[in-house]
Amino acid sequence: MKRTTRNALCNLLLLAAGAALLLWVDRTFDRYVVQVLNLIAINTILALSLNLIYGFTGMFSLGHAGFMAVGAYVSSLLILPQAQKQTIYILKPLIWPLSVLQAPFFVAVLLGGLAAALFAILISVPVLRLGGDYLGIATLGFAEIIRVVANNIVPITNGALGLKGIPSYANLWWTYGWCALAVIFIARLVQSNTGNVLKAIRDDEVAAKAMGIDVFKYKVISFTVGGFFAGIGGALLASLLTTIDPKMFTFMLTFNVLMIVVAGGLGSITGSVLSGAVITVLLEWLRFVENPVTIGGFTIPGVPGMRMVVFSLALLCIILFRREGIMGMREWSWDMLFRGRTRGGEAR
């Protein structure tokens, strides 16, 4: 069998197995487990989108919470029932076209992503002229601006009260469906020559220019695709949690995504998928350190926020001892699995 056919077959089998697993999980486990599984999918989407921007194109962006906020607000406003809109907008009524607009969940999420992509294009024109740490600061500023604006344009975002009672359409099928889409699209993109071009910009911008690459154009493309999937992630998250407010989209949200990307390996798709699952589970599991613990007659009182201390320490350890993350820039592939048998066989 040809290598490419075999890999395609394996991918299909993996997708089918994933779908079967979802069906089983959906029927057997309680809501808490399902919620964590949903979060894994969403965090994976977010991590992939940041990895495209930071890991593959080398643009240090800290604006993810901003894109997520845009996606979350746009899609929530489109799926909130009209009656619910009238109830929650207490201070000022929702302005006209938004108060009657409705869209199916898929369209709403898509539009959330597109709106975030539009924001990405708009800010990329001034901001992508900066490089390195300066870009990080500028994008961080952008995310903060989005949050402050959301806090203050009450007739659209309902200000600090936020949106409540968002229909919880987001189930395992939606989240994993979008997650699969994000993995497939971004993986295929970075494997194509366009992906090579992005990596070239990351490695050596001057040489990339000399080789005829319109560096600015490709930076905008990468930033926009990343922004799009961040918006999708935000939209799904809003429907999963059923309530959003500006306080949710602080730097901590970006930090969580950044942690997943760094832990998984900058420039590795499989690394991001892997660490998306591991870190989301750890974040939940580590809640026990915040509860009172009794060890041999001693009772240690629970400290809220303790798990973030543990996580920051973990991140420190990653940076000190394994800077390249779980996967580094490598990818896990079917070839690795089958290599044992075909050693010395076909050249890649």
């Binding site: 020559n193 071009v197 070239a200 490695d203 040489a207 990339a208 080789m211």
Partner: peptide, 14 residues
């Protein structure tokens, strides 16, 4: 100034 993290073939394809 090569693209260090890429393969030789990728360098040429870029």
């Amino acid at each position: 100034r090569l693209f260090k993290n890429e393969t030789v073939l990728q360098n040429v394809m870029i």
